[in-house]
Protein backbone atom coordinates (compact mmCIF):
# COMPACT_ATOMS: atom_id res chain seq x y z
CA UNK A 1 0.00 0.00 0.00
CA UNK A 2 2.59 2.52 1.12
CA UNK A 3 4.86 1.31 -1.63
CA UNK A 4 2.10 1.80 -4.16
CA UNK A 5 1.60 5.33 -2.94
CA UNK A 6 5.32 5.97 -3.07
CA UNK A 7 5.50 4.72 -6.63
CA UNK A 8 2.53 6.78 -7.57
CA UNK A 9 4.38 9.76 -6.14
CA UNK A 10 7.49 9.03 -8.17
CA UNK A 11 5.44 8.63 -11.32
CA UNK A 12 3.62 11.87 -10.62
CA UNK A 13 6.92 13.67 -10.09
CA UNK A 14 8.36 12.27 -13.30
CA UNK A 15 5.21 13.22 -15.12
CA UNK A 16 5.48 16.72 -13.75
CA UNK A 17 9.10 16.91 -14.88
CA UNK A 18 8.60 15.79 -18.41
CA UNK A 19 5.04 17.09 -18.49
CA UNK A 20 5.63 20.53 -19.96
CA UNK A 21 7.43 19.04 -22.95
CA UNK A 22 5.25 16.06 -23.62
CA UNK A 23 1.81 17.41 -22.78
CA UNK A 24 2.19 20.73 -24.53
CA UNK A 25 1.51 18.94 -27.76
CA UNK A 26 0.90 20.84 -30.93
CA UNK A 27 -2.52 19.23 -31.38
CA UNK A 28 -4.01 20.70 -28.25
CA UNK A 29 -1.96 23.91 -28.28
CA UNK A 30 -3.15 26.43 -27.30
CA UNK A 31 -5.62 25.28 -24.66
CA UNK A 32 -5.24 28.29 -22.38
CA UNK A 33 -4.59 32.02 -22.84
CA UNK A 34 -1.19 32.98 -24.30
CA UNK A 35 0.88 35.97 -23.13
CA UNK A 36 2.37 38.19 -25.76
CA UNK A 37 5.02 40.24 -23.95
CA UNK A 38 5.71 43.73 -25.34
CA UNK A 39 8.89 45.10 -23.74
CA UNK A 40 7.89 48.74 -24.24
CA UNK A 41 5.40 51.11 -22.64
CA UNK A 42 1.96 51.55 -24.22
CA UNK A 43 1.79 53.91 -27.15
CA UNK A 44 4.68 53.01 -29.43
CA UNK A 45 4.85 50.98 -32.62
CA UNK A 46 5.63 47.71 -30.82
CA UNK A 47 2.62 48.26 -28.58
CA UNK A 48 0.30 48.98 -31.48
CA UNK A 49 1.52 46.15 -33.69
CA UNK A 50 1.51 43.79 -30.70
CA UNK A 51 -2.09 44.53 -29.85
CA UNK A 52 -3.18 44.21 -33.45
CA UNK A 53 -1.30 40.94 -33.82
CA UNK A 54 -2.60 39.60 -30.51
CA UNK A 55 -6.17 40.21 -31.56
CA UNK A 56 -5.67 38.45 -34.91
CA UNK A 57 -3.86 35.49 -33.34
CA UNK A 58 -6.74 35.05 -30.89
CA UNK A 59 -9.05 34.71 -33.87
CA UNK A 60 -6.68 32.30 -35.63
CA UNK A 61 -6.05 29.94 -32.72
CA UNK A 62 -9.20 30.31 -30.65
CA UNK A 63 -7.48 31.29 -27.40
CA UNK A 64 -6.95 34.83 -26.14
CA UNK A 65 -3.46 36.19 -26.94
CA UNK A 66 -3.05 38.79 -24.23
CA UNK A 67 -0.70 41.65 -25.05
CA UNK A 68 1.22 42.58 -21.90
CA UNK A 69 3.47 45.63 -21.59
CA UNK A 70 6.67 44.90 -19.66
CA UNK A 71 8.66 48.09 -20.20
CA UNK A 72 12.03 48.88 -18.70
CA UNK A 73 15.75 49.19 -19.45
CA UNK A 74 15.25 49.76 -23.17
CA UNK A 75 13.37 46.50 -23.63
CA UNK A 76 15.82 44.31 -21.69
CA UNK A 77 13.46 43.59 -18.79
CA UNK A 78 10.58 42.40 -20.99
CA UNK A 79 12.88 40.35 -23.20
CA UNK A 80 14.35 38.67 -20.15
CA UNK A 81 10.88 37.75 -18.89
CA UNK A 82 10.38 35.66 -22.03
CA UNK A 83 13.95 34.33 -22.04
CA UNK A 84 13.27 32.85 -18.61
CA UNK A 85 9.70 31.72 -19.28
CA UNK A 86 8.65 28.08 -19.58
CA UNK A 87 9.28 26.92 -23.17
CA UNK A 88 5.69 25.79 -23.70
CA UNK A 89 4.49 28.28 -26.29
CA UNK A 90 2.39 30.21 -23.80
CA UNK A 91 4.81 33.13 -23.52
CA UNK A 92 5.68 35.00 -26.70
CA UNK A 93 7.75 38.10 -27.27
CA UNK A 94 7.40 40.80 -29.88
CA UNK A 95 10.59 42.76 -30.23
CA UNK A 96 12.48 45.12 -32.53
CA UNK A 97 16.24 45.31 -33.34
CA UNK A 98 16.95 46.48 -29.77
CA UNK A 99 16.97 42.79 -28.82
CA UNK A 100 20.28 42.36 -30.67
CA UNK A 101 21.61 45.89 -30.19
CA UNK A 102 21.33 45.90 -26.39
CA UNK A 103 23.72 42.96 -25.80
CA UNK A 104 26.41 44.70 -27.87
CA UNK A 105 25.88 48.13 -26.42
CA UNK A 106 25.46 47.31 -22.75
CA UNK A 107 27.18 45.31 -20.05
CA UNK A 108 25.30 42.74 -18.01
CA UNK A 109 22.43 42.02 -20.35
CA UNK A 110 20.80 39.08 -18.60
CA UNK A 111 19.70 37.15 -21.69
CA UNK A 112 21.60 35.62 -24.60
CA UNK A 113 19.32 35.96 -27.59
CA UNK A 114 21.06 33.10 -29.41
CA UNK A 115 20.83 30.64 -26.52
CA UNK A 116 17.65 31.70 -24.77
CA UNK A 117 15.33 32.69 -27.58
CA UNK A 118 14.41 31.73 -31.10
CA UNK A 119 12.42 33.35 -33.84
CA UNK A 120 8.91 32.26 -34.79
CA UNK A 121 8.69 34.76 -37.62
CA UNK A 122 10.00 38.16 -38.61
CA UNK A 123 6.59 39.70 -39.04
CA UNK A 124 7.25 43.13 -40.44
CA UNK A 125 9.65 45.55 -42.04
CA UNK A 126 9.71 49.26 -41.79
CA UNK A 127 12.40 51.46 -43.31
CA UNK A 128 13.50 54.74 -41.79
CA UNK A 129 13.34 57.97 -43.73
CA UNK A 130 16.22 60.44 -44.03
CA UNK A 131 14.90 63.91 -43.23
CA UNK A 132 16.87 67.14 -43.31
CA UNK A 133 16.44 70.70 -42.19
CA UNK A 134 14.80 72.79 -44.93
CA UNK A 135 17.58 75.35 -44.45
CA UNK A 136 20.14 73.03 -46.05
CA UNK A 137 20.94 73.78 -49.69
CA UNK A 138 20.74 70.08 -50.59
CA UNK A 139 17.48 69.11 -52.28
CA UNK A 140 18.26 65.50 -53.21
CA UNK A 141 20.08 62.68 -51.53
CA UNK A 142 23.08 63.01 -53.86
CA UNK A 143 23.38 66.71 -53.06
CA UNK A 144 23.04 65.97 -49.36
CA UNK A 145 25.75 63.34 -49.53
CA UNK A 146 28.09 65.81 -51.20
CA UNK A 147 27.16 68.50 -48.67
CA UNK A 148 27.81 66.18 -45.73
CA UNK A 149 31.19 65.18 -47.16
CA UNK A 150 32.11 68.84 -47.69
CA UNK A 151 31.24 69.74 -44.07
CA UNK A 152 32.73 67.04 -41.89
CA UNK A 153 32.16 67.52 -38.15
CA UNK A 154 29.79 70.43 -38.68
CA UNK A 155 26.47 68.66 -39.07
CA UNK A 156 24.32 67.39 -36.22
CA UNK A 157 21.94 64.48 -36.48
CA UNK A 158 19.07 63.73 -34.14
CA UNK A 159 18.03 60.31 -32.89
CA UNK A 160 15.49 58.65 -30.64
CA UNK A 161 18.20 57.98 -28.05
CA UNK A 162 21.48 56.14 -27.72
CA UNK A 163 21.55 52.74 -29.39
CA UNK A 164 18.21 53.19 -31.15
CA UNK A 165 17.90 52.31 -34.82
CA UNK A 166 17.83 56.01 -35.85
CA UNK A 167 21.10 56.51 -33.95
CA UNK A 168 22.83 53.52 -35.53
CA UNK A 169 21.52 54.48 -38.96
CA UNK A 170 23.12 57.91 -38.51
CA UNK A 171 26.34 56.26 -37.39
CA UNK A 172 26.28 53.90 -40.37
CA UNK A 173 25.67 56.86 -42.66
CA UNK A 174 28.61 58.79 -41.16
CA UNK A 175 30.87 55.80 -41.61
CA UNK A 176 29.73 54.91 -45.12
CA UNK A 177 29.70 58.49 -46.39
CA UNK A 178 32.98 59.30 -44.69
CA UNK A 179 31.34 62.36 -43.17
CA UNK A 180 31.54 62.51 -39.40
CA UNK A 181 28.48 64.14 -37.82
CA UNK A 182 27.58 64.93 -34.21
CA UNK A 183 24.98 62.70 -32.60
CA UNK A 184 22.31 64.58 -30.64
CA UNK A 185 20.09 62.11 -28.76
CA UNK A 186 16.46 62.93 -27.95
CA UNK A 187 13.90 61.02 -25.97
CA UNK A 188 11.92 59.76 -28.93
CA UNK A 189 12.42 61.07 -32.44
CA UNK A 190 9.45 63.48 -32.34
CA UNK A 191 11.34 65.83 -30.03
CA UNK A 192 14.10 66.28 -32.63
CA UNK A 193 11.84 67.87 -35.23
CA UNK A 194 11.47 71.38 -33.76
CA UNK A 195 15.26 71.63 -33.57
CA UNK A 196 15.49 70.35 -37.12
CA UNK A 197 13.04 72.99 -38.32
CA UNK A 198 15.21 75.59 -36.58
CA UNK A 199 18.32 74.08 -38.27
CA UNK A 200 19.96 73.34 -34.92
CA UNK A 201 19.93 69.73 -36.02
CA UNK A 202 20.55 69.18 -39.72
CA UNK A 203 19.35 65.65 -40.36
CA UNK A 204 17.91 62.51 -38.84
CA UNK A 205 16.91 59.01 -39.78
CA UNK A 206 13.35 58.97 -38.49
CA UNK A 207 10.65 56.35 -38.23
CA UNK A 208 7.99 56.91 -40.86
CA UNK A 209 5.28 57.66 -38.31
CA UNK A 210 7.54 60.19 -36.65
CA UNK A 211 8.39 61.96 -39.91
CA UNK A 212 5.04 62.01 -41.73
CA UNK A 213 3.48 65.00 -39.92
CA UNK A 214 6.51 67.13 -40.79
CA UNK A 215 7.25 65.98 -44.32
CA UNK A 216 3.66 66.28 -45.52
CA UNK A 217 3.86 70.05 -45.60
CA UNK A 218 7.61 70.28 -46.15
CA UNK A 219 8.53 71.66 -42.75
CA UNK A 220 11.40 69.22 -42.99
CA UNK A 221 12.64 67.68 -46.21
CA UNK A 222 12.44 63.94 -46.84
CA UNK A 223 15.27 62.76 -49.10
CA UNK A 224 15.42 58.98 -49.10
CA UNK A 225 14.24 55.84 -47.35
CA UNK A 226 16.57 53.21 -45.94
CA UNK A 227 15.09 49.91 -47.17
CA UNK A 228 16.13 47.73 -50.06
CA UNK A 229 13.14 48.86 -52.10
CA UNK A 230 11.15 52.14 -52.09
CA UNK A 231 8.69 52.48 -49.22
CA UNK A 232 4.95 52.50 -49.89
CA UNK A 233 4.71 55.41 -47.44
CA UNK A 234 7.12 57.48 -49.59
CA UNK A 235 6.78 55.97 -53.07
CA UNK A 236 8.47 58.95 -54.73
CA UNK A 237 11.66 58.80 -52.69
CA UNK A 238 14.67 56.72 -53.75
CA UNK A 239 16.36 54.38 -51.30
CA UNK A 240 19.67 55.47 -49.84
CA UNK A 241 21.21 52.39 -51.43
CA UNK A 242 19.96 53.31 -54.92
CA UNK A 243 20.84 56.99 -54.57
CA UNK A 244 24.49 56.67 -53.71
CA UNK A 245 25.40 54.41 -50.78
CA UNK A 246 25.25 50.93 -52.18
CA UNK A 247 24.17 48.23 -49.76
CA UNK A 248 22.89 50.70 -47.15
CA UNK A 249 20.01 48.88 -45.50
CA UNK A 250 18.38 49.86 -42.21
CA UNK A 251 15.21 48.06 -41.28
CA UNK A 252 13.15 48.51 -38.14
CA UNK A 253 11.95 44.91 -38.24
CA UNK A 254 9.68 43.30 -35.68
CA UNK A 255 9.84 39.62 -34.85
CA UNK A 256 7.97 37.17 -32.65
CA UNK A 257 10.25 35.17 -30.36
CA UNK A 258 9.71 32.19 -28.04
CA UNK A 259 12.02 30.61 -25.44
CA UNK A 260 14.67 28.54 -27.22
CA UNK A 261 13.49 25.17 -25.89
CA UNK A 262 9.96 25.56 -27.21
CA UNK A 263 9.02 22.35 -29.13
CA UNK A 264 9.25 22.63 -32.91
CA UNK A 265 5.64 21.56 -33.61
CA UNK A 266 4.38 24.45 -31.50
CA UNK A 267 6.73 26.87 -33.23
CA UNK A 268 5.48 25.59 -36.57
CA UNK A 269 1.86 26.02 -35.53
CA UNK A 270 2.53 29.53 -34.28
CA UNK A 271 4.43 30.37 -37.45
CA UNK A 272 1.44 29.29 -39.55
CA UNK A 273 -0.97 31.32 -37.41
CA UNK A 274 1.28 34.39 -37.56
CA UNK A 275 1.55 34.06 -41.33
CA UNK A 276 -2.23 33.91 -41.63
CA UNK A 277 -2.66 36.84 -39.22
CA UNK A 278 -0.34 39.17 -41.10
CA UNK A 279 -1.67 38.16 -44.51
CA UNK A 280 -5.15 39.28 -43.49
CA UNK A 281 -6.28 42.40 -45.35
CA UNK A 282 -7.31 44.13 -42.12
CA UNK A 283 -3.88 43.58 -40.58
CA UNK A 284 -2.12 44.83 -43.69
CA UNK A 285 -4.25 47.95 -43.56
CA UNK A 286 -3.61 48.50 -39.83
CA UNK A 287 0.15 48.01 -40.31
CA UNK A 288 0.25 50.36 -43.29
CA UNK A 289 -1.21 53.15 -41.17
CA UNK A 290 1.92 53.21 -39.03
CA UNK A 291 4.25 52.75 -42.01
CA UNK A 292 4.89 49.06 -41.36
CA UNK A 293 4.87 46.41 -44.09
CA UNK A 294 4.02 42.80 -43.22
CA UNK A 295 6.86 40.42 -43.96
CA UNK A 296 6.50 36.87 -42.63
CA UNK A 297 9.35 34.34 -42.66
CA UNK A 298 9.93 30.75 -41.66
CA UNK A 299 11.57 30.26 -38.24
CA UNK A 300 14.87 29.33 -39.93
CA UNK A 301 14.86 32.41 -42.17
CA UNK A 302 13.94 34.54 -39.18
CA UNK A 303 16.84 33.24 -37.09
CA UNK A 304 19.22 33.87 -39.97
CA UNK A 305 17.96 37.43 -40.44
CA UNK A 306 18.31 38.22 -36.74
CA UNK A 307 21.80 36.73 -36.61
CA UNK A 308 22.88 38.76 -39.65
CA UNK A 309 21.44 41.95 -38.13
CA UNK A 310 23.38 41.24 -34.95
CA UNK A 311 26.66 41.05 -36.86
CA UNK A 312 25.87 44.16 -38.88
CA UNK A 313 25.06 46.39 -35.90
CA UNK A 314 27.82 44.99 -33.76
CA UNK A 315 30.30 46.16 -36.38
CA UNK A 316 28.73 49.62 -36.59
CA UNK A 317 28.75 49.98 -32.81
CA UNK A 318 32.36 48.84 -32.59
CA UNK A 319 33.64 50.95 -35.48
CA UNK A 320 31.71 53.99 -34.32
CA UNK A 321 33.07 53.65 -30.81
CA UNK A 322 29.57 53.98 -29.32
CA UNK A 323 29.72 51.16 -26.84
CA UNK A 324 29.24 52.61 -23.41
CA UNK A 325 32.37 52.81 -21.27
Amino acid sequence: MTRAIRWAGVVACLAALIGPASFASAQTYPDKPVRLVLPYAPGGIVDFIGRTLGQRLSEELGQPFVAENKPGAGGILGTDVVAQAAPDGYTLLLMDPAIIINPTLQENVPYDFKKDLKVVSVISSSPLVLVTSPALPAKTFAEFLAYAKANPGKLNYGSAGIGTTPHLAGELFSARAGAKAMHIPYRGIAAAFPDMMANKVQFAFSSITGAKPFTNDNRVRALATTGTKPSSAYPDLPTVAAAGLEGFDVDLWLAVFVPAATPEPIVAKLNKAVAAAIADAKTVEAFAKVGVEPRGTTPAEGNAIVAAEFEKWRKVIKDGGIKQP
Binding site: A190, F193, P194, T209, P213, F214, N216, D217, K289, V290
Partner: peptide, 27 residues
Amino acid sequence: TLGLPSNPTMAMMIGALMIHGITPGPS
Protein backbone atom coordinates in the same frame (compact mmCIF):
# COMPACT_ATOMS: atom_id res chain seq x y z
CA THR B 1 -1.23 72.38 -35.28
CA LEU B 2 2.41 71.26 -35.33
CA GLY B 3 2.30 67.53 -34.77
CA LEU B 4 4.43 68.07 -31.65
CA PRO B 5 3.44 66.06 -28.61
CA SER B 6 3.88 67.98 -25.36
CA ASN B 7 3.41 64.89 -23.17
CA PRO B 8 3.04 61.11 -23.55
CA THR B 9 -0.75 61.27 -23.83
CA MET B 10 -0.45 63.69 -26.73
CA ALA B 11 2.11 61.42 -28.39
CA MET B 12 -0.48 58.72 -28.25
CA MET B 13 -3.13 61.02 -29.72
CA ILE B 14 -0.82 61.61 -32.68
CA GLY B 15 -0.60 57.87 -33.08
CA ALA B 16 -4.38 57.64 -32.99
CA LEU B 17 -4.74 60.34 -35.63
CA MET B 18 -2.17 58.76 -37.92
CA ILE B 19 -3.97 55.44 -37.70
CA HIS B 20 -7.10 57.24 -38.85
CA GLY B 21 -5.11 58.58 -41.76
CA ILE B 22 -4.95 62.13 -40.41
CA THR B 23 -1.51 63.67 -40.23
CA PRO B 24 -1.37 66.34 -37.52
CA GLY B 25 0.21 69.58 -38.69
CA PRO B 26 -0.62 73.08 -39.83
CA SER B 27 -2.91 71.71 -42.51
